[in-house]
């Protein structure tokens, strides 16, 4: 699942490929518009609906954070 999320992040911003930092938001790899696109892709791919309350900056700082959020909904089923 992590690979798929990484592919999605790469599609959103090619800079993600070489990104070594610790905060995708702070470093402008992701912005609010990109988060919106990412959520839409994740929801389509995994057939889930992420609760708006869960869309918090702390989940979008790293790929692992995003993965953790998705796993909350998929229950590790994929």
């Amino acid at each position: 699942m992590k690979e798929k999320i990484i592919v999605m992040l790469n599609e959103l911003n090619e800079d993600f490929k070489n990104y070594q930092g610790e905060d995708l938001l702070k470093d402008h790899i992701l912005d609010s518009f990109a988060i919106m696109e990412l959520i839409a892709k994740i929801e389509d791919t995994y057939e889930i609906e992420i609760d708006a309350d869960d869309i918090m900056a702390e989940h979008f700082k790293t790929a692992d954070g995003i993965l953790e959020l998705v796993e909350k909904y998929t229950g590790n089923r994929i």
């Binding site: 609010s32 518009f33 959520i39």
Partner: peptide, 15 residues
């Protein structure tokens, strides 16, 4: 509008 669109698309207005 970008900011308004994000809020609407992420269903926050219902919350």
């Amino acid at each position: 509008p970008s900011a308004l669109i994000v809020v609407a698309n992420l269903r926050a207005l219902k919350k």
